[in-house]
Amino acid sequence: MKRSTFATLMAAFCLVPAAPAHAATIWDGDASKGTGVFGAVLCSDPASLTHQDDDGRGEVWKVNKPLGLERCEAHDIRVGGTEYAWREGAAYYLGWDTMTNTDDAGTIFHWKSNGTNDQHQQNYPVLIEVEGGVLKVFHIKVGERWTLAWSTPVERDTWKRVALGIHTSSDPSRGWVEVYYNGRQVHSFTGRTWDDLGNKPRWGSYGAEVVDNRVINWMDGMKVGTSYADVS
């Protein structure tokens, strides 16, 4: 018996794969969710990563790095209870609000390479500092060759929105970084952004130069996605 036209059309339709859903935000690091959103908290006592109420914002993260210590950082992200699997050849966007109590907060973000010592060629390919009242975005090439990619004066105790687009590649001609500040793209550059064992983000306060400073870095609206719209 000849198959009906309707049945033929339905069979063809079933063979067409469903279009994938839009990949929205990968990670939402809202402070109300607790420190389990991070892969690890790298804060030695009495340093701490806590959350507190902020008028008009609700819960925000508070990184407290006391005198005498050089680090208090949130390391990596967890999605669905497990550490996220970052990969080479992908474009990631990371966005967050930051406010520090000092003009010299040290490194507030770095795209940290996995491994130690001779296990990596770039300790941190991308790094953001607050130094002397200036927010600075650096690209660090193989061999600890630092390049100041972009900078802007900032005020302490004032919120600002920072976002980075990072295309991960160990090939300097294929990796790229986009820099966004307070809602607009302010810079972009190409270069190696993926080290031998891969990379993960860290946020907080870090650096030998801030051992004698008490640094508080408040953070809010922390997101990771695959487009700027996901984290803006």
Rank of each mutant, 00 (worst) to 15 (best):
P66A: 13
A91M: 12
Q119E: 15
E144D: 15
Q185P: 01
M99Y: 00
D97C: 03
T152Q: 09
D53A: 13
T116Y: 13
Q121K: 10
N117A: 15
S113Q: 12
P66Y: 10
G165H: 07
V60R: 02
F138W: 15
Y92E: 05
D97L: 08
K112A: 14
N117V: 12
R78H: 06
K141Y: 11
W176G: 08
G133T: 06
S169I: 08
H139P: 11
V186A: 03
N123C: 03
S169C: 02
P66N: 12
A74P: 00
I166P: 11
P125N: 04
S113I: 05
K160S: 11
V126M: 11
R184V: 13
R87F: 00
G89E: 03
T100R: 00
F189D: 00
D171W: 07
L164W: 03
Y92F: 12
R174V: 07
Q52D: 14
G58R: 11
E83F: 04
V79I: 09
D104M: 00
P153T: 13
Q185H: 07
T116P: 02
S169V: 06
T107W: 04
D53F: 09
V179P: 03
S169K: 10
V142W: 10
Q119H: 10
E59C: 05
G80R: 04
I108P: 00
Q122P: 12
G58S: 13
K112E: 15
G95N: 04
H187I: 01
W111Y: 12
L148A: 07
I128Y: 05
R174C: 01
Y92G: 04
Y93Q: 06
V134C: 01
D103R: 09
